[in-house]
Design a protein around this nucleic acid. Structure first.
Lengths: 201, 201, 201, 201
DNA sequence: GATGAATGAGTCTTCATTCAT
DNA sequence: CATGAATGAAGACTCATTCAT
């Protein structure tokens, strides 16, 4: 097993345990038992226990960034109506969270309220999602699909909160299948659209 | 200082510290420094550190239960239209969370993903709110104000997620004032109504 | 309740608990619960927890001393044959230990191997019993009832060990009745006599 | 130093300290000072302080069991007269207790009256010795060497008490040499025989 | 004298991290 | 690189003792 594989193995086992028992209730002893490696080996790849956790969140954030770029590239904003655009945005987000339930659980629940530096990493993710929604809403206003007087801060947080809870509920608690994501996305759209979009007569 | 006062003092100081630094980053040493008492005094009132935390959540839950009963008594469901009813429900919930920002922060963020027994206590709160929303939605369906085919599980979680995020954002992050609660509640109503209620022509 | 009564009450409750759970597994909290008094009250009568324990052993020792004097006075050594003399010695010792099973248990078992100062007090009792037996044996030698070449140190310890074990077994473990003491004493005599006394043809 | 050696080292140091100062007056700090190791090392080999103590008693019990089996194998019961048999029994027991004076002191004195689970372990040893003596006495009755009407419970406890006291006195208090064991055993035999064995004319 | 809330020194135990092999 | 025994700082909890009321 080469260095990258070994590192990923440790990350994978830690992720599972952090998701299952939380950061402080996962000991290095648990991680090495899960990975079947020696205590010292962990420290060949990670300076501290913190480092494992923050690497997980960093990777999650980077993967997500990349996923956004890819998805943006796939769809031509101009050729879509705003509802379709929103639909893809929601679906892509949910699909990403669905693809790794342990990370989803960590980022949306188990990783909250730990150390300040972890909080910063998670807040970066949360803030980024809020910013994306805000940007999208602004775009909608520009295109006269969304009323000008919409409270962006409020709406963005409301949408983000919905997405977080829905993801946590369906992917972590209910263990929903990948194929359910489209259905869930459509329902999200149905809930949000009437309040956001200007009705065309 | 009598027993009840001392116990409340310890709870108050612990609450502040748990909210600020999280459960595992708050030591008994911090609590006694904050309260200006001796180490042993804490253990006169609480069996373990856990016990302080769980008491906080228990009290929060009980106070909330009581607040719901009081509020239900104040408003006559029959004399209200469904929008007004929903408005008061949202406002009461937000008002309760606003009234203690430290507890709000603990229940909505710092207390998540800790020990299993803490998780149970917080899940009880979350589940109760989901149940309440579900009951309200069912009532709306009965009164033909809400479409029969609404996905209750989905909608309840979406609404709950919105309320959690909005509360956390405005009361914990933004430190909003009590007077802002009405404004926020109205905005919540504006977001939810169009998707939930059957439009009367 | 006057001072002496209160003090005796504390001693009585402590004795029961020390006998039941040992010195280190009996807390002041247990004693005041058993006695139904306040924490501070204990310290009005005893300087330290140690003091309660050592008072118990001291009292036991003094009572025993007194019991010996009384018994010695009752029986005229000259008018008795050595077997009868030994019988009364054994019976008196067993009767004394039987009269307070908690103390018997403390002195013979629960009180052993604690602190150095406790050990001294208990050793004083043990040594005293060894000395008494030795004196009696010497007397027997003087009167030509016991062979001159008997190993006194060995015999005294053997007899003491027997008495200790028999007392512990019948009074503490088996909870024997007062009326059984005579029977037990006779059996002790039957065991010891053949080896100790010079056989008269 | 490998795992077994290290564990034995901790056991050895603990044994010495427990024997010297008792269980509750021996701190983990004392043990690590005596062993010249770090605090955490103790907990690599033993779950709790209790665990060290109970391991000592367990080992003692097992070693003793094994010693009995070995000794039984060495001597042919049929080819011995009952006195010789009793002599070897006593000698073997005393030899075993003599071989480790710290354990002898713990089992016969310092370990008494501590926690319930320790008491159970020590009682197991005591009961076993009582049972062995009882079995031997029964055998003697079967072979018509011992009177049928002998009170077995009484006699076994008396003999056990003698052996315990004699062992404690000579091996712990008087620090007798190994070579003295034979002499002591012979004296024990001289004390017990006349009362136990049927006299052949 | 009696009370019991408060005290804090003393202990056990945990667990991330190190380092010689 | 891998190992795992050893480390010790950090933290929770206990409990005899005090003292103001």
């Amino acid at each position: 097993m080469d260095a990258t594989e070994r590192k990923n193995q440790i990350l994978k086992c830690s992720k599972k345990l952090f998701s299952e028992h939380g950061y402080y209730n996962t000991q290095i002893a648990d991680i090495i038992r899960e990975a079947g490696i020696a205590r010292g080996t962990v420290y060949q790849y990670f300076k501290h226990k913190d480092h494992i956790f923050s690497t997980l969140i960093e990777n999650f954030y980077n993967d997500w960034q990349q996923s956004i770029s890819l998805n943006l590239g796939q769809h031509d904003l101009n050729s879509m109506n705003p509802r379709t655009y929103l639909y893809y945005r929601v679906k892509n987000t949910l699909e990403f969270l669905e693809s790794d339930r342990d990370l989803c659980n960590i980022v949306l629940r188990m990783g909250l309220g730990l150390q300040e530096d972890f909080e910063k990493l998670i807040l970066r993710f949360e803030q980024k999602i809020i910013n994306l929604i805000t940007e999208d809403l602004k775009l909608g206003i520009q295109f006269h699909n969304i009323p000008e007087d919409l409270d962006l801060e409020f709406t963005a947080n409301m949408i983000a909160g919905s997405l977080f809870r829905i993801s946590y509920h369906y992917f972590v608690v209910k263990d929903a299948r990948k194929k359910d994501v489209e259905d869930i996305s459509r329902k999200v759209l149905e809930m949000l659209s009437p309040a956001i979009f200007i009705k065309r007569s």
